[in-house]
Each structure stands twice: as C-alpha cells, then as structure tokens.
Simulated scan of single mutants.
Amino acid sequence: MRRAWLKLTTSLFLTLAAPLAAIPAQAAAPAALRLWRLDCGRIQMNDASPLSDTSAYAGQTRRLSNGCYLVQHGDDYLLWDAGLPRALLDKPLNNQPISATLDRDLESQLAAIGVRPEQISRLAISHYHFDHVGQAALFPRATLLIGAADLAALRAGSPPFADPSLLAPWLTGDGVTDPVQGDRDVFGDGSVTILAAPGHTPGEQALLVRLPQTGAVILSGDVAHLEAQLAPRRVPTWNTDRAGSLASIDRLAQLAAALKARIIVQHDPEDVPRLARFPEASR
C-alpha cells in the first residue's frame, strides 16, 4: 500500500511540475540579444463585451494596441507576429462594433533600424487571426513557426477571424513551415522559447525572451487582451477552448512568478511603455 501511494504521489508531482520543467534553463546570453516592439496597428472596440464570457465588459468600449516584436539573436532575426494587413494603412477608425487601422507598416519600421525583410529567418506567430498575420507575406523566405493545431485548423478550412490567404506562401507549399508541438527552445540556448498556450485558438502560443539586462519577458499573444483580464481570469467569447484558456492564463502567471518575468500583453496600450520605445531596443 505504501509503495502504491508513493508511486501515485510521485506521478502526480511529475505531472504538475512538467510545464515548468519544460522551460529550458538559460545558458549564457548571446552577445547580441535585443528586442524591439513594433507598431502593428490599433483596434477600436465600440462593443467590448466579447472580451469576457461573463459579461464583465458589457456596455463598455476599449481601445487596443497591436504589437509585433523583433528579436535579434546574434546574426539571426526572429519576428514575433505580423500585425494587421497593409490594406488598413491610414484607414479611419469608425463606429462599427470593431474597427482597425495601421499607422506604419512593418517594412518601413524595419528599415528605420537597418533590417531588411530578407534578413528575417524565422517568423513565429502567436496564432492564426488576421491581426497577427496580416503582413506575414512580406517575409516569404522566413521559416514559419506556427502552433501545429493552428496549422491543422487552417488546412481544414477557414476558422473565424482567419484569412488563410495572408499565409499563402506557407499554405501553398512555397514557404518553409515548422509546426510547433508544445514548447520550443528556438535557438537551443534557452534565451528564446515559444510557449504552448492553447485556448484562444487551438495552437495559441506565447513567447519567452530572457534579455540580459531587462530580464525575462513573456509576450502574451492573445492569452489575454488586457492586463485586467489576467487576475480575474476573464475569457473572451471567441476563444475556442474555455478550460484551455484558463489553464494558459494560469501557466503564464506561474511562469512569470517563477522566472521573475514581466508579462507584456500585446493588445494592452498600457503595456507599450514597459519595453523600450521604438527605435530603441530592450536589451
């Protein structure tokens, strides 16, 4: 009986510890590890009620930011998310329930820091929604790192809020696609890790970047759209899996506590100043 109890206790401990143990320990930081926050648009929600399936935002409005992020790792560049489509450049926000606009495209912002689109070797996306892949086709030579479940959903059809044509170079077989199962240590040294965070979409991902001076940063993807959603664990109505969404919120919160990391909610305008202001980079 005692042996069976010990076996059960050990198994339960290993199951609960697995998510944290899966995160690689950080090796010596590369000589050049930098993170830029890029402006990938603005979204006006004149009806913010979809941000919570418990009516927490009923009758309210919200203005959302839309951040993309460039990671330099030595001579390699990884782009995290590709923002709103260029067709929305200079479009006015309107009185529809949700409207979006783009002030600057990715190509012009990269040019401002001396980076050419062809230098982006990896394009990692948090999920397949159009506001996160809108300018992906600017980087057809990049390897697309996408959650395997999101890739399967795109290949099976056109999920809500997705426009597969925005990922045409990879869905047609012209581009190199790297489906991500679980977590992924991108460069093999623990400095940049894709985190599995399903719920918003089946293959939703977040990104952990361990900067040598700033410290650890977790880019949220759409695990949350506002900081105010995290503590009360508010789940949007459009998420594909409520239980998965809650588990992913909890996971990011626990990781942030364990690693003393700051969570950057990509759609929250209040989080924009938490990283260096473009064209400066966080180091």
Rank of each mutant, 00 (worst) to 15 (best):
M1G: 15
W5R: 15
L14S: 06
L16Y: 10
A21G: 08
P24E: 02
A25Y: 11
Q26V: 10
A27L: 07
A29Y: 09
A29C: 12
P30D: 03
W36F: 01
R37Y: 03
I43V: 15
N46L: 07
T54A: 14
A56W: 09
R63H: 12
L64S: 03
D76S: 14
Y77C: 00
Y77E: 00
D81K: 01
L84V: 12
R86A: 15
A87T: 13
P92S: 12
Q96C: 10
R104V: 06
L110P: 03
L123W: 02
I125V: 15
S126C: 04
H129N: 10
F130A: 12
F130Q: 11
H132I: 07
G134K: 09
G134C: 08
P140D: 01
R141C: 05
I146K: 10
L151A: 08
L154Y: 03
R155L: 14
A156R: 12
F161C: 06
A162Q: 00
D163T: 11
P164T: 07
L166Q: 06
W170C: 03
T172L: 03
T172V: 08
G173Q: 06
P179C: 11
D185W: 01
D189W: 04
T193M: 12
L195S: 11
G199S: 07
H200P: 04
E204I: 11
A206L: 14
L211Q: 02
L211E: 03
P212Q: 00
T214A: 11
G215S: 01
V217Q: 00
S220N: 10
G221S: 07
V223H: 09
Q229C: 11
P232E: 02
P236L: 10
T237N: 08
W238Q: 15
S245W: 02
A247W: 06
S248G: 07
D250K: 05
D250I: 04
L255D: 00
K260D: 13
Q266F: 02
H267Y: 07
P269A: 11
P273M: 09
P279H: 01
E280W: 00
S282K: 00
